[in-house]
Structures are given as C-alpha cells and as structure tokens.
Design a protein around this nucleic acid. Structure first.
Lengths: 146, 146
DNA sequence: ATTCTATTTTGTAATCATTACAGATATATA
DNA sequence: TATATATCTGTAATGATTACAAAATAGAAT
C-alpha cells in the first residue's frame, strides 16, 4: 500500500508540485478509493490517520491536484462535488436511489454534435442518471412481497 | 409576451401543478431567457416586477418544475446550479473565460458505451468545457498587440 | 359575495459547503 | 544551524440552499 507512494511522488514532482505528507495522503486516498469521494469523505477518513489534518488542506490539495490535471472534478449532482483519480475519458452513472456513482467506458469520439470547429474543446463529460441493477431488483422484490 | 401565459398554464395544469402568479413568472422567465440562468439571476430580474418575491419561492418553484420534468438542472460547474427550459437532449458547452454556456445539438444515441443493459437510464447529460470563439479571438488580438 | 380550507408565499433563521486569512509549522536551501 | 519559502491549521467569513412558521392567496362550497 505504501509502496505506491514512490509512484505518486514522481507524479507530483513531474508537475512541479511540492510533495508534503498531506498531499501524498490525499492522492493515495483517491488512488485506493475509486468511488468518487466527496471532500467530507476524504477528510473524515484521512483524519483518523492524521489527527491534525485540516479540511482547508484537503480543499487546497484537491484544487492543486485538479489544476495539475492529476484528478477530475465530478459535478453530476449539484449539491456534492466529487473527485476522481481517473482522468481518462469515461462516463459516470449515478443511481437515484442508492446514490452510488458507477464508471463506464465510452468512446467520446463516437458522439456526433453540431459544428463546434471555432470552439476550443478542452474536456468532455458524460453523465447518466437512473437506477442501478441492485436497486432495480430491490424494487421488484418489494413489489412481489406487496 | 403575456400571450404565451395561456400555453404555460396548460403545461402546469397538465401536470397537476397549481398555477400561481409566481410560478408562471418563473416559467415565463425561463422561456424568455434561454441562457441557463442561476437562481440569483431569476430572482433578481423577477424581483423588479414582483417586489414582494421571495428567493425561497424561486427555489421551491424550480424544484417543483424540475420534478414535473418541465425544466432541467444544469450542473456543468460545481459552484453554480443553472436551470434550462429546454428538456430535449442537447449538449452544454461552458467557456472557461467568459463563463457563458452554449447549447449545442448532439445525437446522444450515437454515443457508444459499455453494456449498461441492467441499468435503467433516465437521463443523459453531455458537458463540454473550453474556450468560445469570441474569447479565442480576443486572446489572439491581445497577443498581436503584445 | 362570503366563508372555509388547503395551498402557496414570505421572511427569517439554520444549515452546509467552500473560501479567506493570519499565525504556526514544516520544508528546502545556503 | 540559520534563513527564506511554502504549506498547514483553525477560525471566521461568505454564499447557496433548506427549514420553518406566520401571513397571504386561491379555489371550492355555501
């Protein structure tokens, strides 16, 4: 687990971001928890290991990592900003019932759209919403039982 | 302008939403201002005509209209919830420089993605970010002038 | 038109996420 | 080790949104 630390350090150095214990820990958390955590989740979990950790530091770190292109912000819902270590193009599906966010692979280049040739497109995000298989089967189960 | 009121009333009645002056005005504002306004923009503008209007009412109304499927929430940015009267599938492009949000037509059905056949997909959103033509030419202009 | 009931609106207070800021701490360099 | 710089921390401030109760309004019944 601590082994990947070296790799993360390289990533930060490559981008001229000074390494600090807090920054490495945030990055490590995102690497190990690919569930698109919120700031609060990150803070609460890291706080167990680092009792002096401040939420401000988590915010600052996430901003720096995002500006460096190491992480992506997921704004699929308006009341909860989430963070994703996977910066490759992919889609996000949010289940309305359990709230879980699922990754799915999509080929963004397959998407046809109006002529935007005079626009400089830097990023593309695809967000789906609906109900996941687990919650769907729960619904069916409840119906059967009445 | 007031002529479209009748049409909007029908829309509300069809969905069992009681009509009130405030609700009609919010809906009318969104119909006439298709720039994906924020709550604050809607409130500030309507407040000129309706001095007693409360921001809470704007929030309540937007929630009701959204639940009825009459409007869509645009969460392309994490710090500003925006509202769109156009509920048909289409993409949103946000310019990083001027902040303006542009609509563009896309064919969502052209997008290829992983097997989600066990998921119930209710909505699809496509968000692009980058720089719009106007801001791009401003950049060029500034460079030329040094 | 008047009364009654249910719904909606309003305004304030509470909540929650995020940012600003300044002092304390840690890091890198000489 | 001393010094300068960058980072972290904790509190306070901000801004968006929600909760809530009283006031106002709309629609139905008389």
């Amino acid at each position: 687990m601590e082994a990947s630390f070296e790799g993360l350090k390289q990533e930060l150095k490559k981008r001229d971001i000074n390494l600090s214990y807090q920054r490495l820990k945030v990055l490590e958390y995102l690497t190990l928890n690919r569930c698109h955590p919120t700031v609060d989740q990150i803070f609460t979990n890291l706080h167990r290991d680092i009792p002096t950790l401040s939420k401000t530091t988590v915010y600052n770190t996430l901003r720096i990592l995002q500006e460096a292109g190491l992480i992506k912000v997921v704004t699929i819902e308006d009341n909860e900003t989430r963070y994703d270590i996977d910066v490759e193009d992919h889609g996000h599906f949010k289940c309305k019932l359990c709230g879980k966010i699922y990754d799915f692979h999509t080929d963004m280049s397959s998407l046809t759209f109006d002529d935007l040739s005079n626009f400089r497109i830097d990023s593309k995000d695809v967000y789906f919403k609906g109900i996941c298989p687990g919650c769907l089967s729960n619904i069916k189960e409840n119906k059967r039982r009445g």
